[in-house]
């Protein structure tokens, strides 16, 4: 009995020892900083010889009164609400297209995937010149159709939408790969069974394809949602959050507060809010993926 217990303990110890390197890495670069960030958000920012002091929820109160925070938060929500479904719809559409028996589909798949392999900063620079007023590609096209020039990035009405287009362009190709994999997992027999019943294309999509790729859709949606709250590169590269914060997103604002304003405590409070948003998305992912869509 005694010996048995010892063996069991040994197995536990060994298990933990094996996991230790990963645990240490995760803890020191992810968990501890996250916890420290949350703690920091209850203190003031140290300035020179003035040390930081505990101020409770003052940072959060300041946040509630900060119009730029709300602008960034609302922008981010809009960003997610628009880019996630559009990117998914495009990705699925492209996947359905290149999954069919068409000529040159390998080239097409590659073409759709290309945006994904570009670094965000490179992609942003390409789009910067698409959007340039006067000689930008986009304006040349719309001028050819007789429309007036649009200052895409320089107009508060279009700046955020222009950034969204870049995100969608970049993500759709990536998500297409997931959908393509999912579509190829669907046995062709199922489509033939549906053909036997003379089900139309839309019915087949709605009754068979869509439910069968649902786990992929959910996975992609969650990832897209998390990405939407992690976007910062193209904001820096393309608009700097302007004009007048029209394209400011949460992470960009955090960057600005932390590394332009050097207000590390306020940045910690903002990060805590972002952490909460991302955390709840991740929880939803676990819940939905594990419980709701598990029929295989």
């Amino acid at each position: 009995m005694q010996a048995k217990r010892t063996t069991k303990l040994n197995i536990h110890v060994q298990g933990w020892l094996l996991a230790l390197p990963a645990v240490i890495l995760l803890a020191s670069f992810t968990h501890i900083p996250a916890v420290v960030t949350v703690i920091d958000s209850f203190y003031s920012t140290p300035r020179g010889r003035v040390p930081s002091v505990f101020i409770g929820l003052d940072q959060y109160q300041a946040m509630l009164a900060d119009p730029i925070f709300w602008r960034a938060f609302n922008n981010n929500l809009l960003y997610a609400v628009v880019t996630v479904p559009v990117a998914i719809a495009l990705a699925l559409g492209m996947a359905l297209w290149v999954n069919g028996r068409i000529k040159g589909r390998t080239a097409l798949r590659l073409a759709f995937f290309t945006p994904t392999i570009l670094p965000m900063v490179a992609a942003a620079n390409i789009w910067l010149f698409f959007y340039t007023s006067d000689y930008g590609l986009l304006n040349q096209i719309i001028r050819a159709f007789g429309f007036a020039n649009v200052n895409w990035l320089g107009d508060p009405a279009t700046a955020l939408w222009s950034l969204m287009a870049v995100t969608i362009w970049k993500e759709a190709g990536f998500f297409m790969i997931f959908f393509l994999a999912a579509l190829q997992q669907v046995p062709p027999d199922l489509y033939e069974a549906a053909r036997m019943e003379n089900a139309g294309r839309f019915t087949v999509f709605r009754r068979i394809t869509w439910p069968l790729v649902m786990p992929t859709t959910l996975f992609v949606a969650i990832n897209a949602l998390i990405n939407a709250f992690r976007i910062v590169d193209q904001v820096i590269a393309m608009t700097g959050g302007g004009p007048n914060n029209a394209s400011t997103l949460l992470l960009f604002y955090i960057y600005q507060v932390a590394f332009s304003f050097w207000d590390s405590a306020y940045a910690a409070a903002l990060s805590t809010v972002l952490l909460l948003v991302l955390g709840s998305v991740a929880l939803a992912q676990f819940y939905l993926l594990d419980r709701k869509i598990h029929y295989r």
Binding site: L128, F129, T132, S133, D134, Y135, N149, N151, L153, G154, D155, A159, G242, P243
Partner: peptide, 19 residues
């Protein structure tokens, strides 16, 4: 002058392009 925000980085190019 163009409407909206004029990009710092592309202004020299506008000048070179005769815009």
């Amino acid at each position: 002058m163009p409407k909206g925000i004029i990009e710092w980085g592309t202004t020299p190019k506008d000048f070179f392009e005769g815009k």
